[in-house]
Simulated assay, not measured.
Amino acid sequence: MTETPNPNIVDADTLTGEMRPIRRVVIALGSNLGERFTALQGAIGVLADTPEVWITGVSPVYESTPVDCPPGAQDFLNAVVLADTTLSAHRLLDRAQAIEDAFDRERGEVKNAPRTLDVDLIAVGDRRSDSDALRLPHPRAHERPFVLKPWHDLEPDAELLDHGPVAVLLEKVGTEGLKLREDLVLETE
């Protein structure tokens, strides 16, 4: 298992000497096509192997009914990963999209179409972004129980930037449509 760095320390790039802060990252994983659990586990494996990313927690797996998806979409498996990183938000987004591509994620014109893997950046430290490419914090995380509940399981005192305590947000949206899958346990090694 990778040792978690002290989040109060600034990491120096060994080649350039550039100082980069270590930021806490919240990443949501979801899959509702193909081998759903295998896709989630694979994403965690790739994240764990990513230089400058240190996984510090993986939530339990939840099964959730599709939200805003086309009719007939299958249930999702969802989890949340907490990590520390010195990568910029845009580099982390590039990595997330590369992971999705490695698991044959198709990006079509149908909004919220079923997918083999979804890797969403929910929060990257205190970074804010409102570009077409990257929105931070994630614009719908505060209303998604399949993000809030697994995150709350890992960090009961967590706060979503600009929205407040995750516990309060979860209380507002409830957990209808979520089912804990105790039979599925994601590993970090």
Rank of each mutant, 00 (worst) to 15 (best):
residue 4 T to F: 00
residue 89 A to P: 10
residue 186 L to K: 10
residue 106 E to M: 13
residue 160 L to W: 07
residue 35 E to F: 00
residue 29 L to I: 11
residue 67 V to G: 00
residue 86 T to I: 09
residue 114 P to S: 05
residue 58 V to P: 03
residue 121 L to C: 03
residue 25 V to E: 10
residue 72 G to F: 05
residue 161 L to Q: 10
residue 130 D to P: 00
residue 164 G to M: 01
residue 104 D to S: 08
residue 139 P to T: 05
residue 131 S to A: 06
residue 189 E to R: 12
residue 58 V to K: 01
residue 93 L to V: 03
residue 77 L to K: 04
residue 4 T to E: 07
residue 179 K to F: 00
residue 114 P to G: 03
residue 177 G to W: 08
residue 85 T to G: 07
residue 62 Y to E: 08
residue 172 K to C: 03
residue 150 P to C: 03
residue 113 A to C: 07
residue 79 A to Y: 09
residue 184 L to Y: 12
residue 123 A to K: 05
residue 138 H to T: 06
residue 17 G to C: 08
residue 154 L to Y: 01
residue 86 T to A: 14
residue 9 I to L: 14
residue 66 P to Q: 13
residue 87 L to V: 08
residue 171 E to P: 00
residue 21 P to I: 01
residue 178 L to R: 12
residue 1 M to G: 15
residue 36 R to G: 03
residue 81 V to M: 11
residue 65 T to Q: 15
residue 10 V to H: 12
residue 88 S to N: 07
residue 58 V to R: 07
residue 74 Q to M: 09
residue 75 D to A: 15
residue 162 D to N: 14
residue 1 M to D: 13
residue 47 L to V: 10
residue 134 L to F: 07
residue 187 E to D: 13
residue 171 E to Q: 12
residue 54 W to F: 11
residue 83 A to R: 11
residue 173 V to A: 11
residue 180 L to Q: 05
residue 167 A to D: 14
residue 179 K to H: 08
residue 30 G to P: 12
residue 65 T to K: 15
residue 120 D to A: 05
residue 20 R to T: 14
residue 83 A to C: 14
residue 147 V to W: 02
residue 166 V to D: 03
residue 92 L to Y: 05
residue 93 L to I: 06
residue 43 A to C: 13
residue 24 R to Y: 00
residue 109 E to I: 14
residue 90 H to A: 08
residue 22 I to A: 07
residue 129 S to F: 03
residue 112 N to M: 05
